[in-house]
Amino acid sequence: MGPFTYVRAVDPVEAVGVVSADPGAAFLAGGTTQLDLMKDGVLSPEKLVDITRLPLRGIARTGTTIRVGALTTMEELAADPTVAVRVPFVREALLAGASVQLRNMATIGGNLLQRARCRYFRDPSVAACNKRERGSGCAAIDGVQRMHAILGTSPHCVALHASDVAVPLIALDALVHTRGTDGTRTVPLTGFYLPPGDTPDVENVLRRGELITAVEIPLPAERTRTHYLKVRDRASYEFALTSAAVAVELDGTTITGARVALGGVGTVPWRAWDAEDVLRGATVGRDAFREAAEVTLAGARPLPGTAFKVELAKRTLIRALETVTGAP
């Protein structure tokens, strides 16, 4: 790591002001992405504003939502009783991510902002990376491809968004509360991430210095069943090859409500709107599940090395739906 100025922030407004005003400044929360990328030489801020002392920690139930302070750790959120009971797939996704050590450090706000795991992005000795430097090219497209995205890709970037918990959160229409120099605003997670297009370096709608202060999770109806299924080579401690977050409401064998999102396949956490349309009103069973999977992956643009992910993602979604509906 290069040298930098360390600032311990005590007030959110001031923290936002410092980073907004200084192009060389960055926030430091759990550190599991920021410091990792600084060690790799991918990021080299001149100033780090440590926000971990800001009063943005804690989980509050307010009516039909849970409001999660942005600095709440993944382990803390996973341990929340309301999360465990009402949206168990959020807990499943949290516990499927990283290791306990990292989950004790990583914050929910930081998790949503985690950077791509692409090894071409993470290695500055590779010159061509549009995410690091716009217009420099993409070494990943012609490189080793197994971990790359198949949905939402562009000719300029195929890097995957690797968050697990963002997958059920985007299925739930979670809201991101932020603070910028203009005050606070609320952005739906479904509109938070930006696909790479020809600006892969711009990953979300946050403005410079804008800080996530909380994530609000709307609670689905009590009868909703949820499941998060993660498929990977190792049994633990690995990013997803594919994953599926599903929440359904059933009336007998009829699906009356469905929320579906996929991980491991998209340049952004992938809300499967078309699958939801297929499932809503459908009868529980392999036919509907297969159709939901087919429409979701219809737009996939795999590389030779990621071709397997198309079918794997379909089967992952089908299995998740079978599990959550108890289908035979």
Binding site: R117, R234, A235, S236
Partner: peptide, 23 residues
């Protein structure tokens, strides 16, 4: 190994997978 450059494309413990306890 990356074609062309000979760079090791997965030279970290996050990318070169060895068994973990659960495996």
């Amino acid at each position: 190994t990356d074609e062309g450059t000979g760079r090791i494309a997965n030279a970290t413990f996050g990318d070169y997978l060895i068994p973990v306890n659960a495996d």
